[in-house]
Write a protein that binds this DNA or RNA. Structure first.
Lengths: 223, 223, 223, 223
DNA sequence: AATGAATGAGTCTTCATTCAT
DNA sequence: GATGAATGAAGACTCATTCAT
């Protein structure tokens, strides 16, 4: 259930013992948050999970809210970085629709493989109090802007069906992706299968019917 | 933000003053639950929203947990009834894919127009403690079974692309629908638009490419 | 466990339906009080036991405290009346020690056979708040005065051992009697046996050793 | 009114500051319990008496019930230990009746001098809910068994009047002793006086009349 | 004469947070 | 760096009491 820690993904984050403890607390908070929700996240549970006593958390974070805010922020911030990197790696001239499929791949793999942070961030975005949202909101907007640009480019290239409204279509796609965390069972389906199905579903769901169902050239998937 | 009360939807539920108060409390709980999450739902907030004092709740429900359990259960139970009724109304001989589109219509309209219950139920299904899940779980399974049958029939009729795994595709579709509650803004998009986009997206996303994109005959939408 | 109601013992107390309901509430309160103690006595339990709803009690008593006060008062008041009557029935010239034995008989039978009131009164005398004690205190003093007179007369007649202090001896005797409610099991020992043992114990415990252990002439027991 | 703390009586119980605080809470609970009764015992009163805030109690005890259960248990457990020690100190060959008198001495002094625990235990034994009784019940049975053995030995030695039933006589004696806590006023009578009177009363009350009233040789009394 | 419905006060309990060590 | 001990604020729940019917 618990998935990879952030520090393992991000260079220059695991240094001194102190920083490692801090990371352990963040990871624990992300995990508890993704399971219990904002209001249900108790510092004692986080501390248990991190292997220390609750008051120790205060050595690293000024308050419960700050800790949670950082987890939520890291959730989308990492997601955005991950997506940006995936897009940057695409060769010039990649078709808009293939960029979208690459984004589907990046989003899903990050959500399912890498991080309680993503789940925490996704599940609790509607429940945290306003005052914790500022940084997260900006990052979310930036993330959505990335996606929106992809969709706009696809629309401009005639690769988006004309009966779809861009924003609505984007909401539906992101929903399909975000929700996987709720039902995906790694023992029944591999991540690869989920990714492949999602890409197929999204491509067909968005593309104009006239477009011959070209075999995709692996551009959106790393394997 | 607050949407229709259950009792307005369900006949024989709004009778005596007592029953109306009980319904008001349930509606309030559904609303708070959908916004604040399981652990964040305070009886005092529910009471405020229902226009009475917190202890009055105990006149109608034995405990906070019982109240919440009933909301969660009612959430999917109503959803299932709503979907079942929508399917029952379809004319014999309706194509499998059109049944799915009708289900998309029913699901979305219930979620967006009718009920905090659905949102409460959807958002909190992963957060409530085990002991509150029994009834809800059964109902959820039954609901999913309804959908699964639709997808199976579509697959048998060759109306589902062969590169899609039924269960994965279903998860993606339900995710796209469930997530709408998170981003839909009634002031920017009408429910009809969301429904139309979702139906178009789902039809195209599932159907074999060869299938000519027939204009849908309104079978899935009642308006 | 529940023993006789007061009204059955006291003439002119069971009249109209209203008065019977009032008596039922008092009896119920005495019962609950004797089992749960002062603070543990809830009006809802009293109401259950009396076969009505809690608010109905307010038709007969201004408050919980008034109800309890009346039970406590009735407890010793009845006890005193009962003892007084028993003493009044004794023939002139009854020996002081035999009067004490008659009192032992009266006290025990009232406590064990007749009344939750006595038990309630005895068990809770130390726990009720000061302001409820006034009437009860006076009655208790009067009751103790009755006993004290008996002991004084016995002392004057040389029927109390000189190494006993009157008040201490009285405390011990009343303790032996009062405590029977805590251990007596009607299925193992008859009231008659308890009374006989108590009389024997008290007579021997108080009388000067020189006094030949006369067979008692039944003066202290009516059966 | 408040009497000695347990820890003062029991070696190896007053150690670290933490243990002393725990002991203070127990002492306070015993005191409140002996005055207010089971249902009337508020954690806030206990906390006041112990000189801390109510929630601090939860640092030492999992719940109000656990705290009370421990007080009740300690009440008789200490009593039994105290009695056992007193009996163990008696020289071999002590007459059965003198053992009983020694037990009277031990019981009374513990009850009057040492402990709110005894009073709490005695007064509330009938009022606490079943689930708190398990340990206490066992200890009470063991305590009563000690006394019963003493009475049996006395009966076997012909030192108990034949018109007394052992169990009834024991009930009367323990009642006389237990009840002293209800009336004893240290400003009017010394503990020694109460003990002396009780021993005299019990010896005479139990012994066969034929037995010449030997002067007791102080075996049962410390003076 | 009695009840259904509701409330206000109070109690237990949890939990973030502090602080001395 | 971390913990044991403690606190204040808040929340669920109980219960005596009220009031309209």
């Amino acid at each position: 259930m618990a998935r990879g820690s952030r520090s393992a993904q991000i260079p220059d984050e695991a240094d001194s013992k102190s920083q490692r403890t801090r990371a352990r607390i963040l990871d624990a908070a992300a995990h508890v948050l993704s399971v219990k929700g904002y209001a249900g996240t108790r510092l004692s549970d986080v501390a248990d999970y991190a292997g220390l006593q609750a008051p120790a958390i205060y050595y690293y974070f000024p308050s419960r809210e700050d800790l949670i805010e950082e987890v939520m922020f890291a959730g989308i911030a990492d997601m955005r970085r991950h997506l940006q990197e995936a897009l940057d790696e695409l060769p010039d001239g990649t078709e808009p629709i293939d960029k979208i499929l690459a984004a589907v791949d990046a989003h899903l793999r990050h959500e399912l493989e890498l991080s309680d942070y993503a789940t925490a961030s996704i599940r609790n975005s509607g429940q945290i109090p306003e005052r914790l949202r500022t940084r997260q909101q900006k990052e979310t907007n930036a993330y959505n802007a990335l996606w929106l640009r992809l969709f706009s480019e696809a629309a401009d290239a005639g690769q988006l069906r004309s009966d779809l409204e861009i924003r609505v279509a984007l909401g539906l796609v992101l929903g399909a992706l975000n929700w996987t965390a709720e039902w995906w069972n790694p023992r029944r389906t591999s991540v690869d299968t989920v990714v492949a199905n999602a890409q197929s579903f999204v491509r067909a769901g968005l593309s104009p019917a006239s477009a011959p169902a070209r075999r995709r050239r692996g551009s959106g998937s790393r394997r």
